[in-house]
Nucleic acid binder design. Sequence first.
DNA 1: TGAAATGTTGGGGCG
DNA 2: ACGCCCCAACATTTC
Length: 462
Amino acid sequence: MLPVYVLDDAGEGAWAAGGAARWWLHHALASLDDSLRARGSRLVCFRGDAGKVLGELATRTGARAIFWNRRYEPAAIARDTRLKAELTRAGLEVRSGNAALLHEPHTITNKQGRPFQVFTPFWRHCLTLPVDAPLVLTAGRQIPGPAAWPPSSGFGELGLLPRIRWDAGLAETWTPGEAGAARRLRRFVDVAMSAYAERRNLPYEDGTSMLSPWLHSGELSPRQIWRAVEDVGRAAGLFPPGNGARHFLSEVGWREFAHHLLFHFPHTPERPLREDFEHFRWAEDPGDARLEAWRRGRTGYPIVDAGMRQLWHTGWMHNRVRMIAASFLVKHLRLNWTAGAAWFWDTLVDADLASNTLGWQWTAGCGADAAPYFRVFAPVLQGQKFDPEGAYVRRWVPELARVPAACIHAPWEAPPEVLAQAGVTLGPKGNYPRPIVDHAQARQAALDAFRALRGGEVVVRE
DNA sequence: TGAAATGTTGGGGCG
DNA sequence: ACGCCCCAACATTTC
């Protein structure tokens, strides 16, 4: 058996992995290579066209069969289909399997035989279906290798690591690889899951599973998660075992729903599902000044800035804060959601085409089961509600660390002496910006602009 | 997986 | 004792 990884960026279409995901992939491959070597095998790596690489490799090694797990992004489906045809024609046995999803997207339809476009009925339907048990390799056994290892590059030569070393924060936060995934899953299920329903919304708490990057890169499958939750349920005598578990599984459900939508609506990474949004007039942003303030966490709204800086430092952002920060870009700044999606794509270690697309279209109100146009997150209220002590802001916006909780989410409203006491000076010459837009004004402008799309009314492009 | 405006209710201060 | 007002608390509706 010859374990192979092919980095085929061109085969990913417009969505080759972004910077943070490449960092993750490098370390995930390193970890896989380690565990293969512990069992007498190794990982051989190539970059280039997958069909060409695999065809040549089969010829060189005399391989008779080739196996992979399926992916569900449009470009990946197209490539895998082509690969399967080519390799079969070349006389190889080709078999692909599903390890990425609980249910194959093409098997899920509503009673009209159409894809679901609303989460709740989708998930209710999925919950009636059996979930296959995860396949588990027997641990410890030696893996037979080929008679001779073919020449190949190691994972280190794939060029996945950043040239300038901005990845220190990622390294302190994450342990890519199957072992790291298993530890995190164990911890979550044993320690955090029972309180998940309440704690998942508090960004300073370690209350979410944080399993997304392992799930994305395939070191953990949703079936393993399902199995782990089932085991808890068996012990407790019910499934799902409590409210926390039910909420957690429904987040796995959102991931399934995202893949379901991407499979059935493959244009959605680039274009809104709701066609009327094609003509929405996003705000001008000379020099991308506002977009850049958002990216760098310099909007002047502490909860937004904390999230954007957590993202930059760790390659991850708490989900509650993702919603707030994304809403801010789309509603308060009225910048195109695709610009936000592109930034998340490059900076998230869990960047996943299906989930990223769903999340941004949901926020913008142009997707399936989306937030209505009039839902505008108020960053100050959200901060006060979900980070009442300001601990999250203090952690990620150290300039504000000494601001009292009462005004940490709206420092511009703090009495001058309180700011002075906390060592904060606001504005371009100070150490923390004033809000780049006024909340009430931006909210009203967003309502006006988005209301024009209501009920199929179309704003015509000039 | 909102927020803000508006409406309703009920307790308490007060003339 | 009573009505009136204020306003907080809660509910409803509107965006």
